[in-house]
Design a protein around this nucleic acid. Structure first.
Length: 108
DNA sequence: GAATTGACGTTCT
DNA sequence: AAGAACGCCAATT
């Protein structure tokens, strides 16, 4: 095993997120066993922007598009989510619980 | 090398 | 109930 490729693990999980689904930083962090370091997930995704990682499917615990500003343009993230059939109001995902994809439940 | 910040979340006050 | 503080760990300055 590597010396904790936290980032790479995050990429794996995010890439496994089905279309029309979303997850939260904490969920990924907990799945990786690094609960509490949800911030690192954000950092990881920051690097994922230049990769093939659909980071727009990852939001904070309340379904708020906190990282929209990192997509180059604030509306980019919202547009991407809506393209997948997810209803987004301002910066908040509607029925977040319904779209929530928990790796601990789906993958575990 | 120390201090600060950051796409969060939990817990204490 | 609402607000403030802390913890996580890496990257940037």
């Amino acid at each position: 095993m590597d010396k904790t490729s936290f980032f790479q693990d995050v990429y794996e999980v995010v890439k496994l997120i089905p279309e029309g689904r979303v997850t939260s930083y904490g969920a990924i962090a907990q799945y990786l066993g690094t609960a509490g370091s949800a911030r690192m997930v954000g950092w990881a995704l920051n690097s994922s922007l230049t990769k093939d990682i659909p980071a727009h499917r990852v939001v904070n615990r309340i379904g708020l598009l906190t990282g929209k500003k990192h997509f180059g343009h604030p509306n980019r993230m919202k547009e991407l989510l809506e393209q997948e059939g997810i209803r987004v109001k301002d910066n908040r995902i509607q029925e977040f619980e319904r779209y929530f994809w928990d790796p601990k439940k789906e993958l575990f």
